[in-house]
């Protein structure tokens, strides 16, 4: 049987900001800037910042990338009809998705969000450790790169996580972020290495 092939991907190019985060390109056009703000006062859960930089195969900062995150709420529920987990309903004050550009000068990207809860695994038996899904596009990236960020302070859950356990222990640490703090706020640092030494584990999902 014939299926229609997926539309080929092409690089987002250096000007991706115009379409997806026009404020960073330098102008105001839309009333609602999608993905700019993930959390309101009503959102439940621990406030955290996730931030990092992106490096290329020569160790140079990638300053023109766009990162999107998708995650469950504080109780591990997704704001989506395919989430049929039993238990509490999803947090109506949390959409779960955000997007941000790497800063043109510092190369830093950041999301102010909440720490997600554990999510039921594919098999329905075990739970996946708390994590956020990330998707990275930029000039020079022909097909968006998918990965996950796990939380360094969830050692026991990480040890039992079905996805982390698929990864060579020597590379597992590339997708586990250390918990730190700055001015009283919780900050997880997550640098992404596109190529070479310490290369981030990217996923074919």
């Amino acid at each position: 049987m014939d299926y229609l092939p997926e539309t080929p991907s092409q690089t987002a190019g250096p000007y991706v900001h115009i379409g997806l985060i026009p404020r960073q390109a330098g102008f105001e056009i839309f009333v609602n800037n999608l993905g700019e703000r993930m959390v309101t006062d009503a959102t439940r859960g621990e406030r955290i910042r996730i931030e990092g930089r992106i490096f290329d195969g020569a160790g140079s900062l990638v300053r023109d990338a766009l990162v999107e995150v998708w995650q469950a709420d504080a109780h591990g529920r997704h704001n989506h009809p395919a989430d049929v987990q039993e238990g509490a309903a999803h947090d109506p004050a949390f959409h779960g998705w955000g997007r941000a550009g790497t800063d043109f000068a510092t190369g830093i990207w950041a999301f102010d969000t909440i720490k997600p809860g554990a999510v039921e695994g594919r098999s329905g038996r075990g739970r996946m450790a708390p994590h956020v899904s990330l998707w990275i596009v930029a000039r020079g990236i022909n097909l968006g790169l998918s990965t996950r960020m796990y939380f360094g302070d969830e050692a026991a859950a990480n040890e039992a996580d079905p996805v982390l356990n698929l990864i060579d222990p020597a590379r597992r640490g590339t997708i586990i972020a250390a918990r730190g703090g700055r001015d009283g706020a919780v900050v997880y640092s997550f640098d992404i290495r596109l190529q070479g030494e310490g290369e981030t584990v990217f996923l074919d999902i």
Binding site: G57, W70, R122, V163, G196, V201
Partner: peptide, 16 residues
């Protein structure tokens, strides 16, 4: 310089 050298890790879909 922006292409991974390691093969992507194939993952069966989960709720994420």
């Amino acid at each position: 310089l922006r292409s991974p050298r390691f093969p992507l890790l194939s993952l069966q879909n989960s709720l994420s």
